[in-house]
């Protein structure tokens, strides 16, 4: 009579083992930029639930946040991130250049692999005492403008490109664009290295008449410091700051996490995730969701980097490389 019990126990172990084999525990790492923290904190649990329902697997999502380019460098140098969610496409392009992902990465998901975007807008002191309405107003003498350093910050880069593109899109020439951008940066008293630093300078140190930053950063400022201290100004024309995502092929193939990583990014395009993004003042790709949020994310005249500059890489090379147009603005020669 002892036998069946032993067998039962054995069976039990086999069942447990096979169960474990069916309901695998997987983990993925999402390397992201700095201020996406709040969004992914909300999004990750919804994906964990979805994946559990769909496959029965338990997925753990680890987050790593830092400057967008810093994160890209970390992945290039061997950080095993399964997915990257960046704030500018050149930071994903570098992974393609280093052969971690294919060059056509942007075509793998809808909208150039950008599930949502932001744009550069103005934040002014309450009542807008200096009457700032447009990019041209930023160039006026006596206006103090806070923009993050375009050499070290994606936020600053988009602000620069938005100002430049506003001239081109209104039929201006490169010479005029350069003059405008030159005058704007002559009005910048402090070049903070990141978008958050620029926020601190403007909000806490009370320096500057206007802060140029991402729309979703403005949402956070209103939340943190009170909505009544500052006014939002939408420039008549601004830029689409695409927030691209990609799986890292080299890593997911090595770790066997391709399926879950791909699903993680695809789920960003679902109405629920798009709705969540809109709540964090990121502009959703989904037109239906976008329409619902016109009160906080109004329709604006926007242009993309590619429309004005060819592509992000060209913009980077021409404007922000050492010795590029931005450096020339500061050159003493």
């Amino acid at each position: 009579m002892k036998f069946p019990i032993k067998r039962l126990a054995l069976l039990g172990i086999v069942v447990m083992l096979s169960n474990a084999a069916f309901a695998a525990d997987v983990s993925i790492l999402n390397a992201s930029y700095d201020v996406s923290r709040e969004f992914y904190k909300k999004y990750n649990p919804t994906f964990v639930k979805y994946w559990k329902q769909k496959t029965g697997d338990n997925v753990t999502i680890n987050q790593s946040h830092g400057g967008s380019s810093k994160q890209a460098r970390a992945v290039v140098d061997g950080l095993e991130a399964d997915v990257v969610t960046m704030n500018q496409s050149i930071d994903v392009d570098i992974l393609a250049q280093k052969q971690l992902i294919p060059v056509n990465w942007a075509e793998r998901l809808p909208n150039g692999s950008a599930p949502f975007s932001s744009t550069s807008i103005f934040l002014v002191r309450h009542g807008n005492p200096k009457g700032i309405r447009s990019w041209a107003d930023l160039a006026k003498p006596g206006i103090s403008v806070i923009i993050a350093n375009p050499k070290t910050s994606g936020n600053g880069r988009y602000a620069y490109l938005a100002a430049w593109g506003s001239v081109i899109k209104q039929g201006g020439k490169a010479v005029q664009a350069r003059e405008l951008v030159g005058k704007i940066f002559a009005n910048v008293p402090v070049l903070e290295t990141g978008g958050r630093g620029a926020t601190t300078t403007f909000v806490q140190r009370e320096i500057g008449d206007v802060l140029v930053t991402f729309e979703n950063e403005v949402g956070l400022i209103k939340q943190e410091y009170g909505a009544d201290k500052f006014d939002l100004v939408y420039p008549p024309l601004s830029i689409v700051a695409e927030l691209p995502v990609s799986i890292v092929d080299k890593v997911v193939d090595k770790r066997g996490t391709r399926k879950v990583a791909e699903a993680y990014l695809q789920q960003l395009y679902t109405p629920a995730a798009q709705e969540l993004a809109a709540q964090f003042e990121l502009r959703p790709y989904d037109a239906v969701i976008a329409k619902k949020h016109l009160a906080t994310l109004p329709a604006l005249k926007l242009f993309t980097v590619s429309e004005v500059f060819g592509n992000a890489q060209q913009a980077q090379t021409e404007h922000f490389k050492d010795g590029g147009v931005f450096d020339q603005l500061y050159s003493r020669k």
Binding site: G67, S69, K70, R73, V76, I94, N149, K151, T152, P189, V190, L191, E192, T193, Q316, F320, K321, D322, D327, Y330, R332
Partner: peptide, 20 residues
Amino acid sequence: NMPYISEISPLLIVSKLEQY
């Protein structure tokens, strides 16, 4: 961090790293 006035060398190192 104004170029030529208050920009330190370690910052230039960082901005070079930003360009890979």
